[in-house]
């Protein structure tokens, strides 16, 4: 079993490297390349003047495809890492910050790649992949003892509910990360004239689609959390800070969904709400550091 845990960690490390390399490719692809043309002009008095003309051009398709390949490679390695840890622990590993950050990296990568296929746009990777890399970097600096597989404390001893509740939470966060990336790119695309970015409508729609996955998922998280709280503590809502932070996030996405039906709110203002909402997601995710309460386990 020890070897399995170690192997899982090596897979995570290789996955991190793959994502880092993929992020670089996506960035190169989205930003485009600067092409400098050198022109030699003959002047009437017989000398030549050398002129340089620099232009931004779309990134090469090859770099973009390579980014996608590396991201898939990272997702597969990450899946292996989580799978091995599942084998070692005997349950889906979701009981501490290392484990759910690892799951976030996997799901954010996977969901991003699915959206990339569905919408046929790669530029979003330039925002999602750096987010994934940042999360991976965060995992690397977590204390080493969290990398061990520790037995579940009594409060968490409900592996099916833990998998559903925490797993769906991370799924929601991952889709919100994709929605966030779409909103950022939307604001870029609608403020600067960059011909090779996807159309603003597409980005707006992609953000909305991501929320249509994330919002029901977040609803399920609140419900499953309530069910679990009811089973473990006899009350389905305790006004615990982590609960209310999740409720806050859910409400902000509720505002986003309602404002989309208001004319004039689609687009710019919707995108800004998505940015705020992702702030709420980050707040909820790292909330354990700020406010103890009933969710204060998992090594934070």
């Amino acid at each position: 079993m020890d070897a399995v845990v170690r192997l899982s960690f090596y897979c995570f490390a290789a996955g991190s490297f793959a994502f880092a390399a993929s992020a670089i490719c996506y960035l190169a692809y989205a930003i485009g390349r600067i092409r400098v043309r050198r022109m030699a002009l003959a002047t009437p008095d017989g000398t030549t003047v050398v002129a340089h003309d620099a232009r931004l051009e779309p990134g090469s398709q090859g770099v973009g495809r390579f980014g996608t390949f590396l991201a898939w490679f990272g997702v597969v390695l990450q899946a292996l890492s989580i799978g091995l840890r599942t084998v070692a622990a005997g349950h889906v590993p979701l009981s501490n910050m290392y484990e759910f950050s690892s799951m976030f990296i996997f799901l954010a990568g996977l969901i991003y790649l699915l959206f990339e296929r569905w919408y046929g746009v790669r530029q979003l990777g330039a925002i999602v992949l750096p987010l994934i890399v940042a999360m991976a970097a965060y995992v690397w600096v977590l204390p080493a003892n969290l990398r061990e597989v520790n037995p579940l404390i009594p409060a968490l001893q409900n592996p099916p509910l833990m998998t559903a509740h925490v797993g769906i939470a991370i799924l929601a966060y991952a889709t919100f990360a994709v929605a966030f990336a779409a909103a950022v790119l939307y604001l870029v695309a609608s403020h600067w004239r960059v011909s090779w970015l996807p159309s603003a409508d597409l980005l707006d729609d992609l953000g909305f689609r991501a929320v249509t996955v994330g919002f029901p998922a977040m609803s399920l998280v609140l419900i499953l959390g309530s069910v679990w709280a009811y089973r473990a503590w006899g009350t389905y809502w305790q006004w615990d800070p982590k609960e209310t932070a999740a409720l806050f996030t859910w409400l902000i996405y509720g505002v986003y969904l309602h404002t989309r039906s208001l004319r004039g709110w689609r687009g710019n203002r919707s995108a800004i709400i998505l940015l705020i909402a992702f702030g709420a997601v980050i707040f909820t995710y790292f909330g354990n550091y700020v406010f103890g309460g009933l969710h204060a386990y998992g090594g934070v």
Binding site: M1, D2, A3, V4, V5, R6, F9, Y10, A13, A88, A144, R147, E148, V149, N150, P151
Partner: peptide
């Protein structure tokens, strides 16, 4: 991994 002492990971518990 070899240089970061990961070989000690996984003793669990």
């Amino acid at each position: 991994g070899a240089n970061s002492g990961w070989s000690s990971i996984g003793h669990g518990g």
